[in-house]
Design a protein around this nucleic acid. Structure first.
Length: 301
DNA sequence: ATCTCTGTTCACAA
DNA sequence: GTTGTGAACAGAGA
């Protein structure tokens, strides 16, 4: 379910396993989440190893173990990390289970769009991790970085560029909609319209939404403030939360993804043909709070 | 039964 | 070369 803040929330759910030995490992060999991997060596590499560090970067996670094993985790659409109590019997979607004293670390993913990998690297994260693009909250995520990519993709809809993980790592569908709403930009606005001075504002809003998401969803899965579009974008029938607007929100497909925007605050750009609007998205459901819906999921320690 | 989905990748069209 | 589109992946929930 993850974008940047959700990913960090799930990363910390494995915190209870930090500093502990993996006594036993179970995995669903051949499951799609291991695509591209040879899992035969995972037992030898991880059993007996201590989990020493965890990192999150955009939608990627990395767990470091003694002996040089680095477990990479991408949650895809439905992946999640949990801790279960000792003696836990894995379910059919629990594709990786790490048993430790007093607890069991679980990676589950019903749709298996997620992905796991294990690399060996001594002294630091593996090469692929070091080559990730600059985190949106870091200094490397500069105005020049943003502006350069806006120019390179000047004809693409801004929403498509925001979803590009090579440019805005960790930004997903709801974050993109939130950012665009705050900027008063229609999702189909050509990215080139933001080149130059506006790229500074885009960078600002990306960072602002990322940081604030981290202090709400990212810490305890709590909802962002009621002033956020986030609270109203999941289901049809809501209005723009901006004071003195209250225009009914639009939910339609844009750039290939279900999008939500305010037709008043985010008017279509000049020249955008209003024809052939993709089918309106009829329904929508609220995200669930995993802490509230499952007694089997203890809160973070 | 039918439709949706916080993601990514691929083939193919324009 | 670029960008858009639809399908595919696979399952749960409404």
């Amino acid at each position: 379910m993850p974008e940047l803040a959700e990913v960090d929330y799930f990363r910390r759910r494995w915190d209870p396993g930090m500093g502990k030995v993996v006594e036993h490992l179970e995995l669903h060999a051949g499951a799609r989440v291991f695509r591209g991997c040879e899992t035969a060596g995972w037992h030898e590499l991880l059993q007996g190893a201590v989990m020493e560090v965890s990192l999150a970067h955009g939608k990627q996670m990395l767990f470091g173990f003694s002996g040089g094993g680095w477990l990479g985790v991408h949650l895809g659409m439905t992946g999640e990390l949990r801790v279960e109590s000792a003696g836990y019997e894995p379910g059919r979607h629990d594709h990786l289970v790490l048993r430790q004293a007093g607890g069991v670390l679980v990676f589950a993913d019903s749709r298996m769009f997620g992905c796991l990998r294990l690399d060996v690297a001594v002294g630091g994260p593996p090469e692929w991790w070091r080559q990730l693009p600059p985190a949106v909250t870091s200094g490397g995520f500069s105005i020049d970085w943003v502006d350069g990519h806006l120019r390179r993709r000047h004809r693409s809809p801004i929403k498509a560029v925001l979803l590009d993980q090579a440019v805005f790592p960790g930004v997903g569908n709801w974050m993109a909609d939130e950012i665009l709403w705050r900027m008063g930009l229609h999702p189909l606005t050509p990215a080139g319209n933001l080149a130059g001075a506006p790229s500074r504002a885009l960078r600002y809003h990306v960072r602002w939404v990322a940081r604030r998401a981290m202090t709400t969803i990212g810490t305890d899965w709590s909802e962002p403030p009621a002033s956020w579009l986030y609270r109203y974008r999941w289901a049809a029938g809501h209005c723009c939360p901006r004071p003195q607007c209250a225009t009914p929100l639009v939910r339609e497909e844009a750039a290939g993804r279900t999008s939500c925007w305010c037709p008043s605050c985010q008017p279509p750009p000049d020249g955008l043909t209003p024809t052939r609007k993709a089918r309106p998205v009829r329904t929508g459901h609220r995200r669930e709070n995993p802490l509230a819906t499952s007694s089997a999921r203890p809160p973070l320690s």
